[in-house]
Design a protein around this nucleic acid. Structure first.
Lengths: 183, 183
DNA sequence: GTTCACATGTAACAGGTTACATGATTGG
DNA sequence: CCAATCATGTAACCTGTTACATGTGAAC
């Protein structure tokens, strides 16, 4: 997903400032499947304005920089919908966590435990965020997307809890004994 | 995950050519949480060789370009393990599929169905690939990582099957009627 | 006979990240 | 008083993608 389509897509739902778009994408109800940053959003919004895909109104904001509120134009809406009809690329999942797990047996087991716990913490935080977003949200498409995130988060948490012993050297010994006993 | 660490990490398990590293990362048992490409791997391997983190032996290969087989050096192993002990970044998940779902009610329902089916097909293919990788694999760390992928794939498939009606306009009508009846 | 797998690599380009720069207000 | 939130933006940099370039042998 490029930043262009992302901006158009979010503005489809509501007029917003760049700051708010970033917040929604980075912390809001879309954060589990979108990546972005200010450095990408602000220049994109300027380009989009030049091209007439979004329009801009400004609101004074004492002390703080003027709020620049963007709205999708008709051309913008058309561009969004033709982008939406292009063959979606396959989902991308990248996990340094899993990469580390690959080497768990060559790493200090205390460290591995820390990594596992940290991952669980992150997943639980994500789950909570999604849960409250789900309750606040009325829009079906968004509910579907949030629910998808919830399902994946739960699956990951359950998996880690029920399989973390595989990465544990002490249980490995027990495991081996059990395997021997079974033979 | 940068390509550097990826190459070191894969070479930790086995000596390999760049071609094979790419295959493993793109189609093999690591493909569900790693992204890469030839254009990234070949230059990285050259740099790594210069820096002495990997060593290189060449094997003639009639007609085809000489096979360049890389192996991790001691320095390389050290570098890998210190990278492994840096705080892992949060997992990244990007989904154009979910982005499209957000707009399902403004899109042609036949198209939405096609997108859903395509996503299911991809997930099922991924699941099969992971399943056969799991059977072939003896290494516990890898099994954990593959199992994680299996769990997430299954969760996604189940979720889509049980919630796709939310994106369906015809069921929406039914749904609305039910809601009215409840009022 | 054509496509796929093997096998390496380059180069232009796109895209995004990070850090920097600025500054008021609010809450703890 | 310090940190966080609001609010915008730039610029250097890094990283990786895409397409191109080349060529054999096997399978269908």
């Amino acid at each position: 997903m490029n930043t262009r389509t992302l901006c158009l897509g979010i503005l489809f739902f509501e007029d917003m400032t760049g700051y708010e778009i970033n917040k929604l994408a980075a912390e809001g109800r879309f954060n589990h499947f979108i990546e972005t940053s200010y450095g990408a959003i602000y220049p994109t919004l300027n380009k989009l304005t030049e091209e007439g895909l979004v329009s801009l109104r400004q609101e004074a904001n004492d002390g703080k920089p003027t709020r620049k509120i963007y709205a999708l134009t008709e051309t913008g809406r058309d561009t969004l919908f033709s982008a939406l009809q292009e063959e979606p690329k396959a989902d991308i999942f990248k996990s340094e966590f899993l990469f580390i797990c690959l080497y768990s047996h060559y790493l200090n087991s205390g460290y591995v435990n820390t990594v596992l716990n940290k991952q669980l913490t992150r997943l639980n935080e994500g789950l909570n965020r999604l849960g409250s977003a789900f309750e606040k949200c009325e829009h079906k498409g968004s509910k579907f997307a949030i629910g998808y995130g919830v399902a994946l988060h739960r699956a990951a948490i359950n998996y880690i809890n029920s399989h973390r012993h595989l990465l544990d050297d002490e249980n490995e010994a027990l495991h081996d004994n059990a395997a021997e006993a079974a033979e």
